[in-house]
């Protein structure tokens, strides 16, 4: 039985995605339990810098498919490129970061292999050579322990805050194997370019952030949030639903699909705390969460929590902030 663990090394064309070190650690941990080793799969128009970065990861092998036509991510080209590595390696397990890219590549490959796939996982374990994962259900109100049934390869996407100790893997540089890219005969998707979202204000530079979520209820209640932010000299940000509703511009959105912020103070008002949002703010120095639901997931990451109705509590907080002397007042960025 093959016991190799294939890791998809996700990158943006220049740099590996930040979680790749942790993904490799997890891969090494699982490979050790299976009695195998890790292979990092690198697909793209791979330059020196990216290759050097991949070589520093603690994979046993790096498998590369590099071609100028793979300069920009495109699922219909990246999928067969990764498939050629998969065919050669025939791994027991294929691990991806849970991302916009793996949401396309992982199910496509799993379907083609008629293989089990579980996504959005928090943990992978090997139990008597069976693979089990822990993953969330129902807006993360509960977790499930799920076993994968049937023949390998097993496809798993790992959510980003599944962090693990660094495996005591080899310090030898990985062997590098190159694969030739065989493009598909028919290409039905054409990329017209990747851009970054235009921004008029960069919330990631703010030292204090007051973030608002759906718990605010009505659009007219945004005013009390803005007043509180102003009293504090803080910047107003939001979770995805508020940007989706068009109540605040998308550049103020914190989370995987928005901005990652790390202010000194983050005050989450009426934000439930789905992982999508938490990933973008969990490293803030002080997190205070105000929510009417005592079970809200945001209380799992906050330092201080208040169970309260925003509409009645925020004005009290605003009044207290206005009374307090404020160091550095006038140097903070104001809400816009």
């Amino acid at each position: 039985m093959s016991s190799k663990v294939l890791l998809y090394l996700e990158h943006d064309g220049r740099k590996l995605q930040g979680e790749m070190t942790r993904l490799v650690s997890k891969g090494n941990e699982v490979a050790e339990a299976l009695g195998g080793f890790t292979i990092g799969a690198l697909v793209g128009d791979i330059g020196e810098e990216l290759l050097a970065e991949a070589r520093r990861l603690k994979c046993k092998e790096i498998a590369i498919v590099s071609d100028p036509s793979l300069r920009e991510y495109q699922p219909e080209l990246f999928r067969p490129a990764l498939e050629s590595i998969l065919d050669e390696a025939s791994p027991h397990l294929v691990l991806f970061r849970h991302s916009y890219v793996s949401a396309e590549l992982a199910p496509a490959l799993a379907y083609r292999c008629k293989a089990p796939i579980v996504s959005n996982c928090l943990e992978v374990e090997v139990k008597d050579s069976r693979i089990e994962v822990i993953r969330p259900y129902l807006r993360e109100l509960c977790w499930g322990r799920v076993s994968l049934q049937g023949e390998p390869p097993y496809f798993i996407t790992l959510q980003r805050f599944a962090a693990h100790k660094d495996a005591a893997a080899n310090d030898e540089p990985p062997r590098v194997k190159e694969f030739r890219f065989r493009p598909p005969s028919k290409v039905r998707i054409r990329s017209e370019g990747i851009t970054r979202r235009a921004e008029s204000e960069d919330i990631s530079k703010a030292e204090k952030i007051v973030a608002v979520g759906r718990g605010i209820g009505e659009r007219t209640n945004l005013k009390i949030v803005e007043e509180f932010a102003e009293a504090l000299g803080a910047t107003v940000a939001c979770s995805r639903p508020i940007a989706d509703l068009g109540w605040l511009p998308v550049e103020r959105q914190v989370g995987i699909s928005g901005k990652t912020v790390c202010p000194k103070v983050y005050i989450a008002c009426g934000i439930s705390g789905e992982s999508q949002h938490v990933a973008g703010m969990k490293d803030s120095s002080l997190i205070i969460a105000i929510n009417s639901d005592p079970r809200a997931r945001i209380f799992r990451v906050a330092h201080y929590g208040v169970v309260a109705d925003l509409v009645s509590f925020l004005p009290v907080l605003t009044a207290a902030a206005r009374r307090a002397p404020q160091p550095g007042k006038g140097t903070e960025s104001k809400k816009g």
């Binding site: 293989a115 089990p116 796939i117 579980v118 089990e132 969330p136 259900y137 993360e140 109100l141 509960c142 977790w143 499930g144 322990r145 799920v146 076993s147 994968l148 049934q149 049937g150 997190i287 969460a289 005592p294 997931r297 209380f299 799992r300 990451v301 906050a302 330092h303 201080y304 929590g305 208040v306 169970v307 309260a308 009645s312 509590f313 009290v316």
Partner: peptide, 23 residues
């Protein structure tokens, strides 16, 4: 191709100190 072996409460300790008292 998968089996849910067990459903459990999330094993994330509630990290927040919940504040009590008057508003």
């Amino acid at each position: 191709k998968e089996r849910i072996e067990e459903i459990m409460a999330p094993m994330v300790p509630q990290s927040a100190a919940m504040l009590q008292g008057s508003p």
